[in-house]
Simulated scan of single mutants.
Amino acid sequence: MGLTLTVDGPRWRTHLREVADANAGLVPVVKGNGYGLTRGRLARRSEWLGVDTIAVGTYEELPEVATRFPGSLLVLTPWRPFVPDLDPALRDRVIHTIGRVDDLDALLTRQPGARVVLELLTSMQRHGFSARGLWEAADHLRRRTARARLEGLALHLPLAQGSHLGEVRRHIDAAVGAGLDDLDTVWVSHLTATELATLRSSYADFTIRPRVGTSLWLGDRGALAVTATVLDVHELERGDAFGYRARTAPKSGHLLVVSGGTAHGIGLEAPMGESSIKARASTLARGGLDAVGFVRSPFSIDGKQRLFAEPPHMQASMLFLPAGARVPEVGDEIDVRVRYTTTTFDSVIVT
């Protein structure tokens, strides 16, 4: 009776296996809301795939996945001195991401022999060592008595179009030049199959480990379906008041109350980063429509997206259905189009 994600199990599992078979050294990314599927479910599915390592976003996400996946746990957010001490049972399983010399020193003082990957600052300009900082880190590792267990380099690349190969090559060459001992693995994101094959050919002595999230878990959208339950239906005449804000119906029709609201992520639009004039104009148009209450909702009936009658409530939404349209019955399921990474479902059903 809520917002439901239904997964075609056989089709989804076939897709997961195909991605795993095509990506040697795959590191599934299991972070955030678990791409709508929950982190626990993805951790268990990763064990089914037979991988030895998964990646989480933050240290706070470790407990949920650690009991469901037996292998190594790479934390993508760089370690900082204010990160609480790990559960001793997890210390040998966790791989820390390090992007500053001070953090490397602090971590090894707290946990000698910690497993680390050194993240390099890519064109994303988010986290990581500069070329000079990498030299300092390499020198620091050589001089320390308590040595880190270096698990490789980490490169988080942008989603922008175009090849990343030139940038990746520069970073790997810089790392080799820095004289990092036992460096033989590179953890990468957002590379195409062709780029990965080229890297493996160019750097045959290195193990290339692709971290994959969206294209693994959500790569076959046809295997996923989201539905909401019709909770109530009310006939409206033009001028009838409804809702929290006592808005009035612009014309006759029906008011539908359906499951799914702001608590689920409905109506909370994440920025898409589009910069074209057309995209900006569309955003402004949506803002203008919102002011008068005529915003197209993600809920669809008979293949047509219906309008919000007013902004979504916490756990339900009101839709306006004009006269002449087919009116669903209470208890019927209607389709919903969502952004999985920002949506929380009442139930996830894997067939």
Rank of each mutant, 00 (worst) to 15 (best):
G50S: 05
A225T: 15
L231C: 11
D240A: 14
L183S: 07
Y244N: 11
P298W: 05
D105R: 14
R221Q: 12
F82Y: 14
T214F: 07
L196V: 04
P84M: 10
S252Q: 15
R306T: 13
D52Y: 02
G25Q: 00
A281Q: 12
S252G: 15
R306N: 11
L183A: 02
A316N: 14
G222K: 01
F242G: 01
R100I: 03
G219Q: 07
T122I: 08
R245S: 14
D21M: 04
V233A: 09
N23E: 04
D232T: 10
A178N: 08
L73W: 05
D182C: 08
R132S: 15
A89L: 13
W12K: 05
G331R: 12
W217M: 06
A43R: 02
S275G: 03
F206P: 00
R209K: 08
T344G: 10
Y244D: 12
T342F: 11
G25D: 02
A241W: 03
A323Y: 01
G9E: 10
T198P: 00
V176S: 08
A146P: 06
W217K: 03
M272W: 12
S282D: 13
T14L: 11
A89F: 09
L74M: 08
R339I: 12
E333I: 06
A174K: 09
S130F: 10
V65W: 00
L62W: 01
A281G: 09
V188G: 01
S276V: 08
A241S: 13
R100N: 10
S130L: 08
K304N: 11
S317W: 09
T248N: 10
P28G: 01
V56W: 03
K278W: 06
A281D: 10
P84S: 12
L49N: 04
F129A: 02
A225M: 11
E18F: 03
T53D: 02
G113T: 04
L76V: 11
F242D: 02
R110A: 15
L104F: 07
